[in-house]
Protein backbone atom coordinates (compact mmCIF):
# COMPACT_ATOMS: atom_id res chain seq x y z
CA UNK A 1 0.00 0.00 0.00
CA UNK A 2 1.14 3.50 -0.80
CA UNK A 3 2.61 4.89 2.44
CA UNK A 4 1.13 8.32 1.72
CA UNK A 5 -2.35 6.86 1.35
CA UNK A 6 -1.83 4.89 4.55
CA UNK A 7 -0.75 8.05 6.28
CA UNK A 8 -3.82 9.85 4.95
CA UNK A 9 -6.06 7.06 6.22
CA UNK A 10 -4.47 7.12 9.67
CA UNK A 11 -4.74 10.89 9.81
CA UNK A 12 -8.37 10.57 8.81
CA UNK A 13 -9.05 8.34 11.79
CA UNK A 14 -7.21 10.76 14.08
CA UNK A 15 -9.15 13.70 12.61
CA UNK A 16 -12.39 11.79 13.13
CA UNK A 17 -11.56 11.47 16.81
CA UNK A 18 -11.26 15.25 17.05
CA UNK A 19 -14.53 15.80 15.14
CA UNK A 20 -16.22 13.27 17.39
CA UNK A 21 -16.22 15.35 20.59
CA UNK A 22 -18.05 18.44 19.33
CA UNK A 23 -20.40 16.15 17.42
CA UNK A 24 -21.25 14.28 20.61
CA UNK A 25 -21.77 17.52 22.51
CA UNK A 26 -23.99 18.99 19.83
CA UNK A 27 -25.91 15.75 19.59
CA UNK A 28 -26.46 15.64 23.33
CA UNK A 29 -27.85 19.15 23.41
CA UNK A 30 -30.01 18.58 20.37
CA UNK A 31 -31.26 15.21 21.52
CA UNK A 32 -32.20 16.48 24.96
CA UNK A 33 -33.12 20.15 24.56
CA UNK A 34 -34.17 19.91 20.88
CA UNK A 35 -32.29 23.09 19.99
CA UNK A 36 -29.37 23.41 17.58
CA UNK A 37 -26.52 25.46 19.01
CA UNK A 38 -25.32 27.25 15.89
CA UNK A 39 -22.53 28.79 17.97
CA UNK A 40 -21.09 25.49 19.16
CA UNK A 41 -17.79 25.89 17.31
CA UNK A 42 -17.46 29.36 18.83
CA UNK A 43 -17.72 27.86 22.33
CA UNK A 44 -14.77 25.70 21.33
CA UNK A 45 -12.97 28.83 20.13
CA UNK A 46 -13.49 30.53 23.51
CA UNK A 47 -12.05 27.45 25.22
CA UNK A 48 -9.02 27.53 22.94
CA UNK A 49 -8.40 31.16 23.84
CA UNK A 50 -8.78 30.34 27.53
CA UNK A 51 -6.07 27.69 27.33
CA UNK A 52 -3.81 29.90 25.24
CA UNK A 53 -4.21 32.85 27.60
CA UNK A 54 -3.65 30.90 30.82
CA UNK A 55 -0.73 28.90 29.45
CA UNK A 56 1.28 31.44 27.45
CA UNK A 57 0.27 34.73 29.11
CA UNK A 58 -0.25 33.74 32.74
CA UNK A 59 2.30 30.94 32.77
CA UNK A 60 -0.06 28.39 34.30
CA UNK A 61 0.69 24.69 33.90
CA UNK A 62 -1.03 23.19 30.91
CA UNK A 63 -3.09 20.70 32.91
CA UNK A 64 -4.53 23.46 35.09
CA UNK A 65 -5.30 25.57 32.02
CA UNK A 66 -7.15 22.59 30.54
CA UNK A 67 -9.19 22.13 33.70
CA UNK A 68 -10.15 25.81 33.81
CA UNK A 69 -11.02 25.68 30.12
CA UNK A 70 -13.44 22.79 30.73
CA UNK A 71 -15.09 24.68 33.59
CA UNK A 72 -15.29 27.96 31.69
CA UNK A 73 -16.90 26.46 28.59
CA UNK A 74 -19.28 24.36 30.67
CA UNK A 75 -20.35 27.59 32.40
CA UNK A 76 -20.78 29.22 29.00
CA UNK A 77 -23.03 26.35 27.97
CA UNK A 78 -25.13 26.91 31.09
CA UNK A 79 -25.34 30.66 30.47
CA UNK A 80 -26.27 30.10 26.84
CA UNK A 81 -29.10 27.88 27.93
CA UNK A 82 -30.34 30.16 30.69
CA UNK A 83 -30.11 33.47 28.85
CA UNK A 84 -30.89 32.56 25.26
CA UNK A 85 -32.32 29.09 24.81
CA UNK A 86 -34.68 28.73 27.75
CA UNK A 87 -36.73 31.87 26.99
CA UNK A 88 -37.10 30.59 23.42
CA UNK A 89 -38.12 27.01 24.19
CA UNK A 90 -41.69 27.73 23.09
CA UNK A 91 -40.67 29.62 19.92
CA UNK A 92 -40.41 28.19 16.42
CA UNK A 93 -37.10 26.37 15.74
CA UNK A 94 -35.95 29.09 13.34
CA UNK A 95 -35.97 31.68 16.14
CA UNK A 96 -33.92 29.37 18.33
CA UNK A 97 -31.35 28.66 15.64
CA UNK A 98 -31.02 32.33 14.72
CA UNK A 99 -30.65 33.41 18.35
CA UNK A 100 -27.74 31.01 18.81
CA UNK A 101 -26.46 32.35 15.49
CA UNK A 102 -26.48 35.76 17.15
CA UNK A 103 -24.37 34.33 19.97
CA UNK A 104 -21.96 33.10 17.28
CA UNK A 105 -21.43 36.70 16.17
CA UNK A 106 -21.15 37.95 19.75
CA UNK A 107 -18.41 35.45 20.61
CA UNK A 108 -16.56 36.12 17.35
CA UNK A 109 -16.73 39.86 17.89
CA UNK A 110 -15.71 39.62 21.53
CA UNK A 111 -12.72 37.46 20.66
CA UNK A 112 -11.66 39.95 17.98
CA UNK A 113 -12.01 42.87 20.40
CA UNK A 114 -10.05 41.18 23.17
CA UNK A 115 -7.42 39.18 21.28
CA UNK A 116 -7.35 40.87 17.81
CA UNK A 117 -7.37 38.80 14.63
CA UNK A 118 -3.80 37.51 15.11
CA UNK A 119 -3.21 33.78 15.01
CA UNK A 120 -2.20 32.57 18.47
CA UNK A 121 -0.13 29.46 18.86
CA UNK A 122 0.42 27.44 22.01
CA UNK A 123 3.84 26.30 20.89
CA UNK A 124 3.45 22.80 22.28
CA UNK A 125 4.55 19.98 20.03
CA UNK A 126 5.14 16.32 20.77
CA UNK A 127 7.68 14.42 18.69
CA UNK A 128 6.25 12.53 15.69
CA UNK A 129 6.14 8.77 15.93
CA UNK A 130 7.41 6.48 13.23
CA UNK A 131 5.53 3.31 12.43
CA UNK A 132 7.21 1.51 9.56
CA UNK A 133 7.14 3.94 6.67
CA UNK A 134 4.46 6.13 8.21
CA UNK A 135 4.90 9.17 10.43
CA UNK A 136 2.18 10.13 12.86
CA UNK A 137 2.10 13.38 14.76
CA UNK A 138 2.41 12.64 18.47
CA UNK A 139 0.13 15.55 19.33
CA UNK A 140 -2.60 14.25 17.08
CA UNK A 141 -2.31 10.76 18.55
CA UNK A 142 -2.52 12.10 22.10
CA UNK A 143 -5.54 14.20 21.17
CA UNK A 144 -7.15 11.18 19.57
CA UNK A 145 -6.70 9.07 22.68
CA UNK A 146 -8.03 11.87 24.87
CA UNK A 147 -11.06 12.25 22.58
CA UNK A 148 -11.82 8.53 22.80
CA UNK A 149 -11.45 8.67 26.57
CA UNK A 150 -13.82 11.64 26.72
CA UNK A 151 -16.36 9.80 24.58
CA UNK A 152 -16.00 6.74 26.84
CA UNK A 153 -16.58 8.79 29.98
CA UNK A 154 -19.64 10.36 28.39
CA UNK A 155 -20.97 6.92 27.47
CA UNK A 156 -20.45 5.64 31.00
CA UNK A 157 -22.12 8.75 32.41
CA UNK A 158 -25.16 8.30 30.21
CA UNK A 159 -25.31 4.54 30.78
CA UNK A 160 -24.61 4.07 34.45
CA UNK A 161 -25.66 7.17 36.37
CA UNK A 162 -29.17 8.12 37.40
CA UNK A 163 -28.92 11.52 35.71
CA UNK A 164 -27.52 9.90 32.58
CA UNK A 165 -30.48 7.54 32.44
CA UNK A 166 -32.85 10.47 32.84
CA UNK A 167 -31.07 12.28 30.00
CA UNK A 168 -31.43 9.30 27.69
CA UNK A 169 -35.04 8.90 28.67
CA UNK A 170 -35.95 12.51 27.98
CA UNK A 171 -34.22 12.37 24.62
CA UNK A 172 -36.44 9.43 23.78
CA UNK A 173 -39.74 10.91 24.91
CA UNK A 174 -39.97 14.41 26.30
CA UNK A 175 -43.74 14.18 26.81
CA UNK A 176 -43.81 11.23 29.14
CA UNK A 177 -40.71 11.77 31.26
CA UNK A 178 -42.08 14.74 33.21
CA UNK A 179 -44.92 12.44 34.30
CA UNK A 180 -42.36 10.04 35.72
CA UNK A 181 -41.10 12.70 38.08
CA UNK A 182 -38.15 13.91 36.04
CA UNK A 183 -37.85 17.68 35.93
CA UNK A 184 -37.06 18.45 32.28
CA UNK A 185 -35.71 21.92 33.01
CA UNK A 186 -33.10 20.47 35.32
CA UNK A 187 -32.11 17.85 32.76
CA UNK A 188 -31.84 20.57 30.10
CA UNK A 189 -29.45 22.47 32.35
CA UNK A 190 -27.30 19.42 32.96
CA UNK A 191 -27.24 18.52 29.27
CA UNK A 192 -26.23 22.08 28.38
CA UNK A 193 -23.40 22.03 30.91
CA UNK A 194 -22.18 18.64 29.69
CA UNK A 195 -22.47 19.83 26.10
CA UNK A 196 -20.39 22.85 27.04
CA UNK A 197 -17.81 20.70 28.82
CA UNK A 198 -17.46 18.56 25.69
CA UNK A 199 -16.81 21.73 23.70
CA UNK A 200 -14.19 22.62 26.32
CA UNK A 201 -12.53 19.24 25.96
CA UNK A 202 -12.56 19.61 22.18
CA UNK A 203 -10.95 23.03 22.67
CA UNK A 204 -8.11 21.51 24.72
CA UNK A 205 -7.44 18.94 22.00
CA UNK A 206 -7.64 21.44 19.15
CA UNK A 207 -5.53 24.18 20.68
CA UNK A 208 -2.47 21.95 20.76
CA UNK A 209 -2.87 21.24 17.02
CA UNK A 210 -4.12 24.48 15.52
CA UNK A 211 -3.44 28.19 15.93
CA UNK A 212 -6.47 29.91 17.40
CA UNK A 213 -8.04 33.01 15.83
CA UNK A 214 -11.51 34.56 16.16
CA UNK A 215 -12.87 32.97 12.97
CA UNK A 216 -11.58 29.47 13.54
CA UNK A 217 -15.10 28.34 14.39
CA UNK A 218 -16.20 28.87 10.81
CA UNK A 219 -13.55 26.41 9.65
CA UNK A 220 -14.87 23.39 11.54
CA UNK A 221 -18.33 24.54 12.66
CA UNK A 222 -20.22 23.73 9.46
CA UNK A 223 -18.70 20.28 9.12
CA UNK A 224 -19.56 19.50 12.74
CA UNK A 225 -23.24 20.19 12.07
CA UNK A 226 -23.13 18.09 8.96
CA UNK A 227 -21.57 15.14 10.74
CA UNK A 228 -24.17 15.44 13.44
CA UNK A 229 -27.02 15.34 10.93
CA UNK A 230 -25.42 12.54 8.94
CA UNK A 231 -25.22 10.40 12.02
CA UNK A 232 -28.84 11.20 12.75
CA UNK A 233 -29.61 14.14 15.04
CA UNK A 234 -29.78 12.85 18.57
CA UNK A 235 -28.17 9.55 17.64
CA UNK A 236 -24.92 9.49 19.61
CA UNK A 237 -23.40 6.36 18.18
CA UNK A 238 -24.31 7.38 14.64
CA UNK A 239 -22.68 10.76 15.12
CA UNK A 240 -19.58 9.13 16.56
CA UNK A 241 -19.22 6.82 13.55
CA UNK A 242 -20.05 9.56 11.06
CA UNK A 243 -17.25 11.68 12.56
CA UNK A 244 -14.73 9.03 11.56
CA UNK A 245 -16.28 8.64 8.13
CA UNK A 246 -16.06 12.39 7.53
CA UNK A 247 -12.52 12.47 8.91
CA UNK A 248 -11.53 9.80 6.41
CA UNK A 249 -13.20 11.63 3.52
CA UNK A 250 -11.53 14.93 4.34
CA UNK A 251 -8.14 13.37 4.91
CA UNK A 252 -8.01 11.01 1.93
CA UNK A 253 -9.59 13.74 -0.20
CA UNK A 254 -6.46 15.73 0.57
CA UNK A 255 -4.50 12.78 -0.77
CA UNK A 256 -6.40 12.46 -4.08
CA UNK A 257 -6.97 16.18 -4.77
CA UNK A 258 -6.19 18.99 -2.35
CA UNK A 259 -7.52 19.97 1.05
CA UNK A 260 -10.09 22.41 -0.27
CA UNK A 261 -11.55 19.98 -2.77
CA UNK A 262 -11.73 17.38 -0.04
CA UNK A 263 -14.10 19.65 1.88
CA UNK A 264 -16.17 20.15 -1.27
CA UNK A 265 -16.42 16.37 -1.62
CA UNK A 266 -17.29 16.00 2.06
CA UNK A 267 -20.08 18.60 1.80
CA UNK A 268 -21.44 17.06 -1.41
CA UNK A 269 -21.44 13.70 0.34
CA UNK A 270 -23.40 15.28 3.16
CA UNK A 271 -26.01 16.67 0.76
CA UNK A 272 -26.35 13.26 -0.89
CA UNK A 273 -26.78 11.56 2.47
CA UNK A 274 -29.57 13.99 3.38
CA UNK A 275 -31.29 13.31 0.08
CA UNK A 276 -30.97 9.55 0.25
CA UNK A 277 -31.05 8.82 3.99
CA UNK A 278 -32.68 11.84 5.64
CA UNK A 279 -32.86 10.14 9.04
CA UNK A 280 -29.13 9.64 9.09
CA UNK A 281 -26.71 7.11 7.74
CA UNK A 282 -27.30 4.61 10.50
CA UNK A 283 -31.06 4.89 10.91
CA UNK A 284 -32.87 1.58 10.97
Amino acid sequence: MDPFLLEALLNGVLLGGVFALPVLGLNLVFGVVDVIWLCYAELVMVGMYAVWFLYTQMGWPLALAFAVCLAVVAMLGLLLHLLVVRPLLGSPPISQVLATGGVLFVLQGAATLVFSTDFRSLGVEMPPMEMGEVFISGTKLAAFIAALTGAGVLWAFLKFTYVGTAIRAIARDREVMPLMGVDPQRIYLIASAVGGALAGLAACLLVVQLDVHPFIGLSFGPITFMICVMGGLGNMLGGFLAAFLMGLIVSTGGFWWNTEMSYVVAFLFFILVIFLRPRGLFAR
Binding site: A99, V103, F105, V106, Q108, L113
Partner: peptide, 11 residues
Amino acid sequence: GAAPFVYGILL
Protein backbone atom coordinates in the same frame (compact mmCIF):
# COMPACT_ATOMS: atom_id res chain seq x y z
CA GLY B 1 -14.66 43.12 16.31
CA ALA B 2 -17.29 45.59 17.40
CA ALA B 3 -19.63 45.10 14.43
CA PRO B 4 -20.30 41.36 14.86
CA PHE B 5 -20.49 41.86 18.62
CA VAL B 6 -23.25 44.45 18.37
CA TYR B 7 -25.01 42.56 15.56
CA GLY B 8 -25.02 39.39 17.56
CA ILE B 9 -26.53 41.01 20.61
CA LEU B 10 -29.18 42.66 18.46
CA LEU B 11 -29.99 39.39 16.71
